[in-house]
């Protein structure tokens, strides 16, 4: 007998659920690319669960998967209306998880005419229907060992991820992403640099680049900086550009937060 060469374990994984409400390839691709462009670092090569709200034909489904891959997403599993598609799902090397239990909570969209369902069960700041983000994706926790109801928006476990701390300037062309938590930069952030965080972003220097906080939809996330000179600031998908950032807090210590779907800039005393 040789020594044990593998071990099997269970795990939970946070992934994006792409709810496919209506699949008209061109339109779908246009909307999806736009969404990805809003937070490229977050979406690129992220694993994806396709949730088919309506049944698709095998050809349509193949198109959908190819389209996702072309946009650098990695579909790994399918749920929803999959009955007719089993052989195709198999051929494409995907998993059929239509029988699994999910805890993703789909919050009501503000504007039902739009394909918009955004959700994030990891966010303790979520407050029911007042979700501001409009998107065709929903970030969800696919934990299969729990049967939490959609209203269980309080964190399942008190997991606190330490902040990601960067002690040097973030230069033009660089991107930093703090997954699952806050991002702290103790130096300046150049024009052309991009900061992303699931939580808050703190810059103890001049923020000249882009800062995207709450990229998975945490509307309570904030951006703080010592000197505000940003190209773009985004919170949970809502963003303001340079022109708007300019104002009374220009080049001063400031914080930016979301209030009723509007980004507010406030001086830090």
């Amino acid at each position: 007998m040789t020594e044990t060469c593998f071990r099997m374990k269970g795990t939970t994984l946070t992934s994006i659920v792409l709810e496919v409400i209506d699949f008209e390839p061109d339109n779908f691709e246009a909307q999806l690319s736009q969404k990805i462009a809003s937070a490229p670092q977050f979406f690129t090569r992220s694993s994806l669960i396709l949730h088919l709200i309506k049944p698709l034909s095998a050809t349509e489904f193949e198109l959908l998967v190819a389209l996702c891959r072309r946009l650098q997403l990695q579909p790994m599993a399918v749920k929803g209306e999959v009955a007719e598609l089993k052989p195709t799902i198999n051929d494409l090397g995907l998993a059929d998880v239509s029988q699994s239990k999910f805890t993703d909570s789909v919050l009501r969209s503000q504007n039902p005419s739009q394909q918009a369902t955004a959700s994030n069960v990891n966010s303790s700041e979520n407050n029911g229907g007042s979700q501001a983000q409009q998107s065709s994706t929903s970030a969800a926790n696919t934990s299969s060992d729990s049967d939490a109801s959609p209203s269980a928006v309080t964190p399942l476990k008190a997991e606190i991820k330490p902040a990601k701390v960067i002690n040097r300037p973030v230069r033009s062309g660089q991107q930093v992403y703090a997954e699952g938590g806050d991002l702290v930069v103790t130096a300046s952030v150049s024009e052309g640099a991009e900061l992303l965080a699931d939580g808050n972003i703190h810059v103890y220097g001049t923020l000249r680049g882009r800062a995207l906080a709450g990229v998975k939809g945490n509307t309570g996330a904030r951006v703080f900086c010592q000197s505000l000179d940003a190209e773009l600031i985004s919170i949970a998908g809502q963003f303001i550009m340079h022109e708007t950032v300019k104002g009374e807090c220009w080049k001063k210590p400031a914080q930016v937060y979301l209030e009723e779907e509007t980004l507010r800039i406030e001086p830090l005393a």
């Binding site: 040097r168 300037p169 973030v170 230069r171 033009s172 062309g173 660089q174 150049s190 024009e191 640099a193």
Partner: peptide, 13 residues
């Protein structure tokens, strides 16, 4: 200056 900033990023990575 912008290009120098980029090159500094490349030096760091």
């Amino acid at each position: 200056v912008r290009d120098s900033d980029r090159i500094l990023g490349i030096l760091q990575s």
